[in-house]
Design a protein around this nucleic acid. Structure first.
Lengths: 340, 340
DNA sequence: CCTGGAAACGTAACCGATAACGATTGCAGT
DNA sequence: ACTGCAATCGTTATCGGTTACGTTTCCAGG
């Protein structure tokens, strides 16, 4: 068993094999112009010393690294699900993945984080990046695919059919007999937040229910942002009988506040979320929500990025994936329901 | 709005500010020895050009990068949960995180993967690494903390109390009246796999039940590895009335096989897993399992690595976290139960 | 024996950032 | 006015690997 503690560099290998580093490089990268005998010598030296090329040094010099990047502002369930899809799409593709996460902005948004991360990586380290829920439009030397892009962006992106999903969710509440339906909105700059609010408004309007702006709370997709908004909505003299939250994370906080105020769900209050993160299945009661297959979002984004990087670009640049309503136990007719 | 497509380097900033790159470096890193006027000039140039230091170039030169690494062989729910804990521990710590995942070995183990990843990263990019379920012992210039280490390793590590957890799980089955209890083992080289098997044996022995080697299937923690083993166990003339799988991923495959063979759970077969991944709460039936708080594993590992890297090492080097049994709907007394 | 040309290999210039070193200047103390 | 120290800033070697270019080696053909 060989114990090597100092890092083995290419020049170590070169010295051991009695050749120059240039030759070692050519052997490692399979370039022609090296005699079979020399190749064998170098290979054996690499084996003996346990040499591995440094990702950093390679990427500094090379334009192509075969590494894709993913940047996200935090790692909640949403991102974790996306990640699984990305990994699946990249399996055995020859691309490795680097996920970069900045600890400073954990749990809070700071404008332009994705740009900062991106420039740090894309200088040389990655051939392209996936950005999850970006803050604004992005400039980069290398291709970028956004998951859940900003409103109005024309850059390559993957997103769910948020409008249809939200409409279905609110229609579900309307069908149950709810008339006063609260809404907790997501981060304003994201297209998804906008569409989900549109869906909320559309469903109400279609049902002949006027949109009451005082029933809309302005969150930012961060779960914590929902807590004060839910308190505010539920403590007023005429509270809504149902709340639709633009994300599951926020919906779970609504459940928390309901418990805190002694309201039973779905008896006193119905709650609907959006995303279908794994936790929603195991809460008490199980959360009714809109499934947007975050796994699929990640899978498609990675596929798109791959084809952008390799130059075999032949797909639409903005993919929209279908959603579906998942009815669990957090929704029921209101106490004073006029049954249809 | 400034549009810059070419990457902005330090020398660009230096040229714009009319100083040398050395001065820019000092300003960026907050070193003393630069006049306030020069600092202002450089800052303004950085602002205007939208300069961000290159992670790659910096880490090549520097010994300390303030980036920690995490390598894992794949991203299933287990890893995702660990990741959340790691991020939490690192939040606002000044350390960023890089997760490196090799797409080639997705879903299958190839010996020594963690060593290859590690040498590629630890050359310069990271100050230290967390390795999730390593294959063997590890050599590295920089500190390494293992989550779920190999058997017999004395390196820094974090793991669950697998022995107690497994013992409790099997005792639960014994208490329900089961006598023929199958076991699907995990990857042999890991300490956790070993301890869980120990717990299985201990619980049986304590209950006066002889250990039947033919009831033990040799899996590797990979969900797919459990499918043929479960088929084999359940198709034999005298099948076990309960199966304890060393991981939830494998337990879910047992449920799948049971469905395939027309066995009802928990009527015909009781199943217990280990890990308590989010999915187990939402399967039909909900899986009884041992909770090992993967979040906590990640959290503690990150804390330990931080203190190793900064040199303020004052904790035990091998942390063992408690487990608890989570009883759901996949376990019941056997059909032919002799009630206690 | 000489020449031409291809193959094999080494040299050195990069990539972007850092830090040791040396040189210059400013300022307080005497 | 002089000394000494600290602040200030430019130059350059260096990190590990890649690659353009130049040099050497080798062999076939004349």
């Amino acid at each position: 068993m060989i114990e090597v503690n100092a890092p083995v560099t290419m020049s170590d290998v070169a010295r051991a094999a009695g050749v120059s580093t240039a030759t070692v490089s050519r052997v490692v990268n399979g370039h022609y112009g090296v005699s079979a005998r020399t190749v064998a010598q170098v290979r054996s030296a690499i084996e003996q010393l346990g040499y591995e090329s440094s990702l950093v040094a390679t990427s500094l010099r090379r334009s192509r690294t075969n590494v894709l990047g993913l940047v996200a502002h935090s790692f909640q369930s949403y991102t974790a699900e996306v990640l699984k899809g990305v990994m699946k799409a990249l399996s055995r593709s020859g691309f490795d993945l680097i996920i970069y996460a900045n600890s400073d902005l954990y749990g809070s948004y700071s404008e332009g984080w994705e740009q900062r991360h991106l420039t740090r990586l894309s200088g040389t380290l990655t051939d392209g990046c996936i950005v999850v829920t970006p803050w604004g439009d992005i400039r980069s030397r290398t291709p970028v695919v956004a998951i859940d892009p900003v409103r109005g962006s024309t850059a390559p992106s993957v997103m769910a059919d948020n409008l249809a999903g939200a409409t279905t969710a609110v229609e579900h509440l309307v069908d149950l007999g709810h008339r006063r339906i609260g809404f907790i909105a997501g981060r304003d700059s994201l297209a998804s937040a906008w569409s989900r609010e549109e869906g909320y408004r559309a469903a109400l309007t279609n049902a002949g229910i006027p949109v009451d702006p005082t029933l809309i709370g302005r969150g930012d997709f961060n779960p914590e942002s929902a807590t004060p908004l839910a308190r505010d909505l539920l403590r007023r003299p005429e509270p809504p009988s149902a709340i639709f939250a633009a994300s599951d994370g926020m919906a779970l906080k609504v459940l928390e506040v309901a418990r805190e105020l002694g309201l039973s769900v779905p008896g006193d209050l119905s709650v609907v979320g959006f995303d279908n993160i794994p936790e929603t299945a195991s809460t008490q009661p199980g959360l009714t929500t809109v499934d947007q297959s975050m796994y699929q979002l990640g899978y498609e984004a990675a596929r798109m990025l791959k084809s952008l990087v390799t130059g075999e670009w032949d797909e639409p640049s903005q993919i929209v994936l279908p959603t579906s309503l998942v009815v669990r136990d957090s929704t029921a007719p209101p106490r004073s329901a006029a049954r249809p």
